[in-house]
């Protein structure tokens, strides 16, 4: 009997850790979904641009020995800039009707950014600043890693800021209407290219936050993070419902939670298999995702 309760406690602990870590997936998912929501196009390079921005912040860490918070800020800004670069190279000058063109361009961009980071670091994992790694908070039989808790709180704050921008500002209104009716947006005097570019920068900021949090909670920045971040970001976007920000939040937390539970039962080698199975189940049973609109 005691064994059983120990097991339940362990599973709960795993689920809680996963939920906290899932907030970074939510950020990545929001980034993907934001771009899809505005342009109705997928930017596969989003995760790569975000991680490349985080790599850029290593300069502040290794060369300038800046404190962690400055390193994080550099990651956010660099990812925003790279978001704009992806917009320019993969979307701005490719006709809106050429969906395959932009998709392939972003795949090319992903490979390019990956190659640049691998070459500039010789493919070696790089240490990344860690926040209160040794502090734990205890709640009865459970403990929470305080760095994960910080990541969670910060992700919630970033999401809150983003939602305020989208639903409370002039810029946010522009991003919402441009996707729904681009011609009418032009007739209202809204610049469609400028609005699209701003969306890429905004989502880049989020990606930079997520990238530095992910690297910080692992303590390392490695090219091996690219595929999981990209895939999980896409899985979260699909499960949440393409274009739905609340959907991406819920799905990010859900994927983080389930992934850790899978990890608990089946180990790290099988974990991602179940995450992918989850994706297939959603595509088959509920293709519009948790909170997506019917026509999306």
């Amino acid at each position: 009997m005691a064994d059983f309760w120990l097991e339940v406690a362990d599973i709960t602990q795993s689920a809680m850790d996963g939920l906290l870590y899932g907030s970074t997936y939510a950020l990545i998912g929001i980034g993907f979904t934001l771009i899809f929501g505005v342009m109705r196009k997928v930017n596969i390079a989003f995760g790569a641009a975000s991680l490349a921005g985080t790599y850029a912040s290593l300069v502040a860490f290794q060369v300038l020995h800046a404190p962690a918070i400055v390193v994080f800020a550099v990651s956010v800004i660099a990812s925003g800039v790279l978001g704009y670069v992806v917009y320019l190279t993969c979307f701005r000058f490719i006709a809106a009707s050429n969906e395959l063109g932009s998709l392939l361009a972003t795949i090319g961009m992903l490979l390019f950014l990956d190659e640049v980071t691998v070459v500039s670091t010789q493919g070696m994992p790089m240490p990344y600043p860690v926040l209160f790694s040794d502090t734990m908070l205890f709640f009865g039989p459970f403990s929470l890693r305080s760095d994960l808790l910080l990541v969670f709180v910060a992700s919630v704050v970033c999401t809150g800021i983003l939602l305020a921008v989208i639903y409370r500002t002039r810029l946010g209104l522009a991003t919402r209407v441009v996707s729904q009716q681009p011609v009418a947006a032009l007739l209202c005097g809204i610049s469609v290219p400028r609005t699209n570019a701003t969306t890429f920068v905004l989502s880049g900021f989020l990606g930079g936050v997520a990238g530095s949090f992910i690297a910080s909670s692992v303590g390392l920045l490695s090219p091996l993070l690219l595929i999981p971040v990209t895939l999980k970001g896409l899985v979260v976007t699909v499960i949440g419902g393409l274009g739905s920000i609340p959907g991406a939040i819920v799905a990010g937390l859900l994927v983080g939670l389930l992934e850790n539970v899978f990890l608990y039962f089946r180990g790290v080698t099988e974990r991602d298999i179940y995450v992918m199975l989850l994706l297939f189940i959603f595509l088959a049973v509920r293709p519009r995702g948790l909170l997506g609109r019917l026509h999306a």
């Binding site: 209104l173 209407v177 729904q180 009716q181 809204i190």
Partner: peptide, 14 residues
């Protein structure tokens, strides 16, 4: 060409 998924108020404000 109204904006279908924003409110009437936001359509006008746009």
């Amino acid at each position: 060409l109204t904006f279908p998924e924003v409110s009437v108020r936001e359509n006008l404000i746009a």
